[in-house]
Design a binder for these strands. Structure first.
Lengths: 149, 149
DNA sequence: CTTAATGCAAAAACTTTGCAGTAGA
DNA sequence: TCTACTGCAAAGTTTTTGCATTAAG
C-alpha cells in the first residue's frame, strides 16, 4: 500500500507522519489525477477545513521529492499534480474541447525514446508525451451540432 | 519571410502593424527559442528601452494566436515561448543538468501518434514529446569528475 | 478622424516563506 | 523534552488589465 511506502520514507528522513499529511496523501491518491493545487486543497478542506493551503502545498512538494507525485504542466498552463504509481509509465491524451485527460501506455514509445536518445548521445531518465486534439465524445457532439444546422 | 506573413495576418484582422510589434517579432524570431517572457523583454529593452513589458506580453500572445509562437512549459515550471517555423514539427531533449534544450525531428513519432489516436478514437491536432535526461556534454563532465576522485 | 496599440502602474493570480503555537517521536 | 509541522498572514513572483495618451490606417 502506498501509505506504508510514505510512512517508511517519512521515518527514513526523520520527518513526522502527521494526520494532515496522511489525509492529503489519501485524497491525492484517490483523486482522478491531473488536479491543480487549488483543486486538491478544496477536496482536503471539504473533509477537514482546518488544514491550511500551505500544508497542502508543502505536502505535495514533499510527495514530489519522494517520487510519489509529479508536477505536470499541459498547454493550458495549469500546474497539475499526478500520483505516480510504482513502475508503470503512462502518457496523456488531452482533449482541447472539454479538457479531459486520458492516460495511455505504449511500449513502442519507450523503444522509440531510446533510439532517439542514442542518436543524440543523450542519457534518458524519462520522457513525457502528450497528444492534443478532440476526444470521441466531443467529436460526436460536434457532429450532432453540425447536423442540426 | 515571416515578417510578411505577420503583416498579412495583422491586416486581415484589421489590426495595426506597429514598430514595437515588428521589433518584438524580429528579436523573437532571431532568438534561440525557449525563452521566457522576461528574457525576451530584456532583449527587446536592450534595443529599445521605451517598449514596455506589457507590449511584449501582448505581442507574444498575438503571435501565439497567429500560430507563429507557442507557449511551452517544461518540467522546471518556466513558461517559455518558441517560434513556430511553418510546417516542420520538432520535439525536445531537455538536459536536467545544464538545462539545455535540443530540438529533434522524428517521423516515426508522427506515425505512432496517429496509431495511438486511432486506438482511442481521438482526433489529433498536434503532439508534444519531451525526453529528459543528461546531454553528452554533461555526461562527459560527470565522467571526468568521477575519474578525478 | 477613428480606433487599435502602447506604457505605465496597479490589480489579480499564483507560489513561497517567516514565525509563533502545536503536536509527533 | 526536542524538533519538525501547521496555519495564518504576509511577501514574493508572474501574469493580466484599466486607462489616458499616442500613432497607424
Amino acid at each position: 500500500m502506498e501509505t506504508n511506502r510514505f510512512r517508511t520514507l517519512i521515518s527514513e528522513g526523520r520527518l513526522k507522519a502527521t494526520k494532515q499529511r496522511e489525509k492529503i496523501l489519501n485524497i491525492f491518491l484517490k483523486s482522478s489525477g491531473h488536479q491543480n493545487l487549488a483543486q486538491i486543497y478544496s477536496q482536503v478542506a471539504k473533509e477537514n477545513p482546518k488544514i491550511g493551503y500551505s500544508t497542502v502545498y508543502r505536502t505535495l512538494k514533499l510527495l514530489t521529492r519522494f517520487g510519489m507525485a509529479a508536477q505536470r504542466k499541459f498547454v493550458d498552463g495549469e500546474t497539475r499534480y499526478e500520483p505516480i504509481a510504482g513502475g508503470s509509465h503512462h502518457d496523456h491524451l488531452v482533449c482541447l474541447d472539454c479538457g479531459n485527460i486520458i492516460e495511455f501506455e505504449n511500449e513502442t514509445l519507450e523503444i522509440l525514446q531510446n533510439n532517439i536518445a542514442q542518436q543524440y548521445r543523450f542519457k534518458i531518465s524519462h520522457h513525457r508525451m502528450e497528444l492534443y486534439g478532440r476526444c470521441a465524445d466531443c467529436e460526436l457532439k460536434k457532429e450532432i451540432r453540425r447536423r442540426k444546422r
